[in-house]
Design a protein around this nucleic acid. Sequence first.
DNA 1: ATAGATAAGTCAACATGACTGACGTAAAAT
DNA 2: ATTTTACGTCAGTCATGTTGACTTATCTAT
Lengths: 152, 152
Amino acid sequence: MQAIELLFFAYRDFTGEPDELLAEYGFGRAHHRVIHFVGRHPGITVSELLSILQITKQSLSRVLGQLVREGFIKQTPGAIDRRQRLLELTENGLELDGKLFNVQRQRIIRAYKESGAEAVAGFRSVLMNMMEEDDRPRFNRKHKKPSFDRPS
Amino acid sequence: MQAIELLFFAYRDFTGEPDELLAEYGFGRAHHRVIHFVGRHPGITVSELLSILQITKQSLSRVLGQLVREGFIKQTPGAIDRRQRLLELTENGLELDGKLFNVQRQRIIRAYKESGAEAVAGFRSVLMNMMEEDDRPRFNRKHKKPSFDRPS
DNA sequence: ATAGATAAGTCAACATGACTGACGTAAAAT
DNA sequence: ATTTTACGTCAGTCATGTTGACTTATCTAT
C-alpha cells in the first residue's frame, strides 16, 4: 500500500512549483484553484465553483473577491438567470493562468513521456475510480457534458 | 490535460474520509501525516519527518507535541545518537493509525479492483515520475532502502 | 401578485496549519 | 575546545478554512 505515500509525494511536488509562482503575485493555492477552474470552464457560476471546491462561500468570497478586485477575474450577470455572476478570466487572468497551467503541464508531460501511453491510461483510470462517483461525469466529455456546461 | 483536475478531485476525496475521522479526535490533516509516517516508519527521527513533510520544525512541533502529550506517539532517545528522539506510535496511536489507514486502503483497493493490475502499474509509474527524483528512492524498496531506514 | 426559494454577497468571530526570526540545551563531530 | 547538529520553544504573522446571522436581487410556484 505504497499508494498513499506515492500520492502524498506526487501531490506535494505537483503543487510546489505553482505555489512559488503564485507567491510572486501575493496569491496562494486557493487562488490557484479558482483561477484554474474559471480558466478551464469560462462562464462558470459561483455556486458551481463552490460545489467543486467544497468550501464555504465565505472562504471562496475572500479569494474570489481579491481576484476580481485585482483584475484577474471578471463577473458578468447571467443572461438567463440574472442572479448568477458568470466568471471569466481577464487578460491578466489568462496570462497568469497560462503560466500556472504550463508549469503543471510540463511536469505531467514529462511524467507521461517517461511512463508511456499505457501507463497514462492506467493512471487516469485509477484516479477516476478513486474519486467520488458524482464528479466522474465531468471527465467523460465525449459521452456526457459536465453539469456546469448545461445549467440544470 | 485533464490530469490536473483528475488529481484535484481524487486527492480531495482521498483525504476527505480521513479528515472526518480525525475531526472526532480533534485532529487535522497535519496530525494525519505525522501519524502516517511514524506508523509506516517506526523509529523515524524528527529531522527525517521534517524533510519528508517539508514544513518548519515549529509547525511540526505543534502537532507532534500534541500527539505526544495526548498519548498517540512516544519518543525515545536514539541509542547511537542520543540527541535524536525516535518516534513510535503508542497503542492508542496504532489504533487511530489503523482506522485511518483502513479507510484510505479501502478506497485504493476499490479503485485498483475497478481498474485492473495493469492500470495500477501505470498509476504508480506516472506518480513516481511526477515527484521530484530525490524522493523516488524511498519506493524502490527491493533495490534501495529509503534513507530513513538506515540513518546516514 | 405575492410568498418562498435560490444565487450571491457581507459582517463577525474563530481554528488550523503554515511561516519567520530569535534563542536555548544537549550531544556529537571536528 | 569549538563548532555543528538535533531538537525544542517563544512570539508574532499570514493564508485558508470554519460557523452563524443577515441582506439584496431575482427567479419560481401558488
